[in-house]
Amino acid sequence: MIKYVLLLAVLLGCARATWAQQRPTYTLLEAGGILGLRHSGGLDAMNGYQFHFAFGRNFYDKAYLGLGIGNDVYRGRSTTIEGTRTTSRVNTLPIFADFRVPLAAVSMLGRLSAMANVGYAPGIGGDYFKGFVAKGGLTYSHLLGEGSDLLFSFGYGFQQFDSRFPGYPTFHQHNLFLTIGLFVH
């Protein structure tokens, strides 16, 4: 009888350890820089920084699908009609769908993945511009501990800017981004 109780305890312990390793969700917190490539309307490209938080479903570490929110800040210089140079700051608060899929194991601790974000930034007050946002790129995740990775992302992005104030035209920008973050899965 003691053998069966011990065997049952070992099996339950193994089952619990296996269940604890499979988290059904993931969380991402990242920050990084934005390098403007091309800007519509003859304006200079804007550079900036971004902060993103995403939370979603982990499909057995084979795919990740979630919802995220971010704060993207763009700064740039432009020339007015009179010929003077002005500095502008444009903020967006994108809400986006986050998709990630692992591609290959680079080493025992590293993994290369693809990522894509698609969403919309609502206009909030006079400080935040609205517009469509899309990003895609590659990520490298380096294992920190069981279920948590240090994540580096590099990719291409598109941002549309639409002000609710009359006289400000809708414009868009193509950019590159580089981020570092924490990925818990």
Score class of each variant (00 low, 15 high):
G41L: 09
E30I: 03
F165H: 06
F158T: 01
E30N: 01
P169N: 11
H185V: 03
R38A: 12
S163E: 13
T84L: 06
N117Q: 15
G42E: 04
G167S: 10
N91T: 00
I124W: 08
F158D: 07
G157E: 07
S78V: 00
P102Y: 04
G36F: 02
G76C: 11
V5G: 07
L112N: 06
L138M: 12
I34Q: 03
L67C: 06
L178W: 07
Q21F: 11
G33P: 01
S163D: 15
G48T: 02
G125E: 01
I69M: 11
A45R: 01
D127K: 15
S113G: 04
S113M: 05
G83K: 13
F183N: 05
A9C: 13
T25S: 13
R23Y: 03
S163F: 04
W19Q: 13
R57P: 09
R16F: 14
G83R: 14
H185F: 01
R38Q: 12
A97E: 00
F161E: 11
G48H: 07
A114M: 12
M108G: 12
F161T: 05
G83D: 00
A9E: 14
S107R: 12
Y140H: 08
L37Q: 10
M46W: 05
T86Q: 14
A54Q: 01
Y168V: 14
E82H: 00
G147I: 06
L182R: 08
L103E: 05
K62S: 13
R111D: 12
D149A: 13
F53A: 08
P94L: 03
V90C: 10
L93W: 09
R164W: 02
T18W: 05
A9R: 11
D127F: 10
F161D: 11
G125D: 01
S148Q: 05
D44Y: 05
P94A: 04
T27W: 09
A54L: 06
S153P: 00
H172Y: 14
F59W: 08
M115L: 05
L65K: 06
Q160R: 10
L151Y: 02
G33D: 03
G157P: 01
G76N: 08
I180E: 00
P94H: 02
H142I: 10
A134Y: 13
G145Y: 04
L144D: 01
Y128Q: 04
G70L: 02
P169C: 00
A121P: 11
G131P: 04
A54T: 06
P94Q: 03
V10W: 14
D98E: 06
G70N: 05
I2V: 14
T86W: 10
T84H: 14
G157Y: 03
A116M: 12
D127E: 13
Y120C: 03
F161M: 10
R85E: 15
L93R: 05
L182F: 08
F132L: 15
L103Y: 09
R85P: 11
L151N: 09
G13E: 08
H174M: 04
A15H: 07
I34M: 06
L67I: 13
G147T: 02
A114W: 09
F171W: 11
V106Y: 13
T27Y: 09
G41P: 08
L176D: 02
G13D: 12
T179R: 02
P24L: 07
G36Y: 04
